[in-house]
């Protein structure tokens, strides 16, 4: 039996950032659920205007993007840096598709005259999803930098620290969406 716990993957500073981000998202989620208590009909009616298909597709895209990040770390540990970078590019492709689909969804709402001031549901919908949207963009930028350096052979089998750090942030973005999808799109 292993007496000592294994170290946390990636950089400790990133985990402190992740914890702070989760606290903020957690407060948003709780605020959404509590505000809904006095606006049940409004929330239920407004929720039905959202596209559940794109919500589900975006969830699968983020889950798959996270899977590719894990595969990239596994490949790098075997010193397969090219293969590892390919997994990261696949992850970036999934994340970019998420951004594209979400952008179309936002555009649809704006062109239908729906914005952050339409009602309380949409205020929270835009606050939560836009906040998450910018986190996905930041995550993609971090992944892209790591993918490029991996592709150029900057990392060896024993140098997974940067990729684990980037991956941890990306998984946080995934984790948050896992709660956001049922909360905003499904439960009523």
């Amino acid at each position: 039996m292993n007496k000592h716990p294994k170290p946390i993957p990636g950089d400790l500073a990133m985990w402190i950032i992740i914890f702070a981000e989760l606290l903020v998202f957690g407060i948003f989620f709780i605020a959404y659920a509590i505000v809904r208590i006095n606006n049940v009909e409004l929330f239920n009616d407004s929720q039905l205007t959202l596209n559940r298909e794109t919500g589900a597709l975006n969830t699968i895209l983020l889950i798959t993007a996270s899977y590719f990040v894990v595969m990239a770390i596994h490949a790098l540990k075997k010193n397969l840096s090219k293969k590892s970078s390919h997994y990261l590019y696949a992850s970036i492709a999934c994340g970019s598709l998420f951004i594209l689909i979400k952008s179309i969804e936002f555009q649809d709402k704006f062109s239908a005259g729906i914005d952050i001031g339409t009602n309380t549901f949409y205020m929270l919908y835009f606050l939560l999803t836009l906040f998450h949207y910018f986190h996905v963009i930041l995550g993609l930028m971090i992944l892209f930098v790591v993918a490029l350096k991996t592709w150029k052979g900057h990392y060896k089998a024993d140098q997974t620290h940067a990729m684990e750090t980037a991956g941890s942030y990306w998984h946080m973005v995934d984790l948050v969406w896992i709660i956001m999808f049922p909360l905003i799109y499904v439960i009523r």
Partner: peptide, 26 residues
């Protein structure tokens, strides 16, 4: 995905605790 299996109890409490509190409050 995050690979937190086997890490110290503190990090498990933080991460699983966040998930539990959020799901329960909702």
């Amino acid at each position: 995905y995050m690979g937190l299996k086997g890490v110290s109890l503190l990090w498990k409490i933080i991460m699983y605790g966040w998930l539990t509190v959020v799901c329960l409050v909702i």
